[in-house]
Amino acid sequence: MRASAHHFGEGIVVETWLIVLLVVVVLVVLALVGLALAKRSRVAGARRREQQRVQAREHLEEARLRGAQAEKEQALAEEQAARARRERAEVEERTRLAEQEARQRAAAAQEHASAAERLRAEAEKLAPGLGDGDGRAPVTGDGPGGSTRR
């Protein structure tokens, strides 16, 4: 059995088995390159997924911290609002009491004014013309409210 040979160009003779071997080697090299690229792609994908997991954990931790901060701020806001409502109620109560006292004083002043008017009217009946014209008794130096010079 004779090995066949192929002629390429001017005087180059290549055995068939050598061509087959060359093709097999090229296919093996291509397969190895393909496997290496596939492995590299898998490693890169795994690395990317791990980075995403780490980033997701960081986001979850940040979300937990911010949630706790939000709850704390909400509690402080509610406490501040309650304090403001309590202070407003105290101010309203003080205002109500002050208005009530003012009404009582106004009523007492009105009673005093009415009593004074009744007394003036009675004094006029008893001694007409005794007043000085404005409804008040003349000031003498003998009683309280008199002159201070003696």
Score class of each variant (00 low, 15 high):
residue 112 H to D: 09
residue 36 A to T: 08
residue 124 E to G: 10
residue 96 R to A: 03
residue 51 Q to M: 12
residue 8 F to I: 07
residue 64 R to H: 14
residue 18 L to Y: 15
residue 13 V to Q: 14
residue 56 A to E: 07
residue 143 G to Y: 09
residue 59 H to I: 09
residue 10 E to P: 06
residue 138 P to I: 00
residue 85 R to T: 05
residue 5 A to P: 03
residue 16 T to L: 03
residue 30 L to V: 07
residue 129 G to H: 03
residue 83 R to V: 03
residue 43 V to T: 08
residue 41 S to V: 04
residue 137 A to P: 11
residue 121 A to N: 08
residue 25 V to D: 06
residue 131 G to C: 10
residue 23 V to G: 04
residue 74 Q to I: 00
residue 35 L to A: 12
residue 89 A to H: 00
residue 47 R to W: 07
residue 85 R to P: 09
residue 62 E to D: 13
residue 95 T to H: 11
residue 112 H to G: 07
residue 148 T to N: 11
residue 106 A to Q: 03
residue 12 I to Q: 11
residue 79 E to N: 10
residue 32 L to W: 03
residue 25 V to K: 03
residue 84 A to C: 01
residue 83 R to K: 09
residue 23 V to E: 06
residue 7 H to Y: 15
residue 26 V to D: 06
residue 146 G to Y: 00
residue 64 R to D: 11
residue 125 K to E: 14
residue 91 V to E: 06
residue 47 R to T: 15
residue 64 R to N: 12
residue 63 A to T: 07
residue 110 Q to K: 14
residue 11 G to T: 05
residue 72 K to Q: 11
residue 48 R to I: 13
residue 96 R to M: 01
residue 130 L to Y: 04
residue 76 L to H: 07
residue 125 K to P: 03
residue 60 L to E: 15
residue 101 E to C: 05
residue 63 A to I: 02
residue 80 Q to C: 09
residue 13 V to E: 15
residue 115 A to C: 04
residue 98 A to K: 02
residue 129 G to L: 00
residue 22 L to M: 09
residue 117 E to V: 07
residue 42 R to C: 05
residue 97 L to C: 01
residue 45 G to Y: 00
residue 62 E to S: 14
residue 4 S to T: 12
residue 69 Q to V: 01
residue 123 A to N: 11
residue 38 A to V: 09
residue 58 E to K: 07
residue 115 A to I: 02
residue 80 Q to P: 09
residue 132 D to E: 12
residue 101 E to T: 04
residue 85 R to F: 02
residue 131 G to M: 14
residue 104 Q to A: 10
residue 5 A to W: 12
residue 140 T to K: 05
residue 70 A to H: 07
residue 50 E to A: 14
residue 91 V to R: 09
residue 16 T to E: 15
residue 119 L to I: 06
residue 147 S to W: 13
residue 21 L to I: 04
residue 76 L to N: 10
residue 13 V to Y: 13
residue 147 S to H: 12
residue 43 V to D: 07
residue 26 V to I: 14
residue 46 A to E: 08
residue 105 R to N: 05
residue 84 A to M: 01
residue 125 K to L: 08
residue 103 R to S: 11
residue 52 Q to C: 04
residue 142 D to E: 15
